[in-house]
Design a protein around this nucleic acid. Structure first.
Lengths: 187, 187
DNA sequence: CTTCACATGTAAAGCGTTACATGATTTG
DNA sequence: CAAATCATGTAACGCTTTACATGTGAAG
């Protein structure tokens, strides 16, 4: 009779997406990439088994396809149930578990050999380019939210997570610039 | 004859710390928390088995204790070998694998019910307090590096990772403030 | 004499990705 | 008809944490 672990937020990420709109597993994967991709990710290997479990537990249910498959195999669309939305609300209230941060880039910087700094600065430049590219993505997303979700009740919440991405990208780019300058001066 | 996975950076984080100074497994855990803790973490369950494997592979070796145990069980101190340092240098050159970001806080914000926004804003306030506290830690660390590593060749690299933490904390705090303001205005 | 800090290690379980298997339909 | 896209699902593997097991010496 021990307290089980219950840390996994994968079921809730799925529940949350289905609460916005009924979707198939395939859609969930795409929607995750296109909306919460800068701070969350789910693979098919997680999505399909989790959907099956949620359905068994009565937190989601199969529904008729609103948008039937355009091509390929027959799809299975899921929607949340009242119990599913209640579970989501309860999860939302619980304080988020902050996962230990892990940045291999910073690890390489920390263990950087000053005589071989160029090896690592290459990675810093790549990181800068990556964040710069993401900034462009964020601009696209911002336009999409403004156009397609102008009156949606969750609009402000979506803009807030987007804003996080922008501020994060700005901070990373500034850090890359400062670091590149500091090591250029040193060499 | 397939290409094996080889993603794990745990052995390199250990190798990197041992390259700075010979240490025991217990020390590695503490050093990780006190120097790279804002972007990396290792648990004992990883450290001890990894140390054993690295020793077997000849990348680290047991050495006599420089600082013998002050209390408790006899400790085992490890140092890097030439092969270990070579492996570390090779790893440093490889582009870092960027791990999919996962922020449960942002997930809760994204799936926030606008009518129950207070539930989530509580988490935002906690996150702000957390980052604020970390800022104080960073000030302590900065002083320690200036005092104790003034002439260490890796000084600039260590300051760079510290600077990352500071910029990150600043960005998060700004985001928290903006978000709290936006939702206060809306309610 | 009990508690705390030091110290090492193993076992189990959870989480997550990757690779693989399968298959239908559209597009070139 | 080949390739791309849509779509679902399983199996294997690897990484990491948590819990447990064990034991010592110092401090209060």
């Amino acid at each position: 009779m021990k307290a089980r672990k219950r840390t996994a937020s994968t079921p809730y990420s799925i529940l949350g997406l289905l609460a916005i709109e009924p979707m198939s597993g395939y859609d969930i994967h795409r929607a995750a990439n296109e909306t919460i991709g800068h701070f969350w990710s789910e693979s098919f290997g997680q999505i399909y088994p989790t959907l099956a479990r949620l359905a068994k537990d009565g937190l989601v249910r199969r529904v008729a396809d609103a948008t039937p498959a355009r091509a390929g195999r027959r799809r299975t669309t899921y929607a949340t149930t009242a119990r599913g939305r209640a579970a989501l609300a309860a999860w939302r209230k619980r304080p988020p578990v902050l996962q230990p941060p892990r940045s291999e880039l910073l690890l390489k910087v920390f263990f950087c050999d000053p005589r071989r700094a160029q090896d690592v600065l290459l990675h810093v430049r790549a990181a800068r380019a990556f964040e710069q590219a993401r900034r462009a993505t964020y601009r696209v997303w911002r336009g999409r939210i403004r156009r397609e979700a102008a009156d949606h009740p969750s609009r402000d919440a979506w803009l807030a997570t987007l804003r996080y991405g922008e501020l994060h990208a700005r901070a990373v780019i500034q850090w890359c610039d400062e670091t590149l300058r500091a090591f250029a001066a040193a060499s």
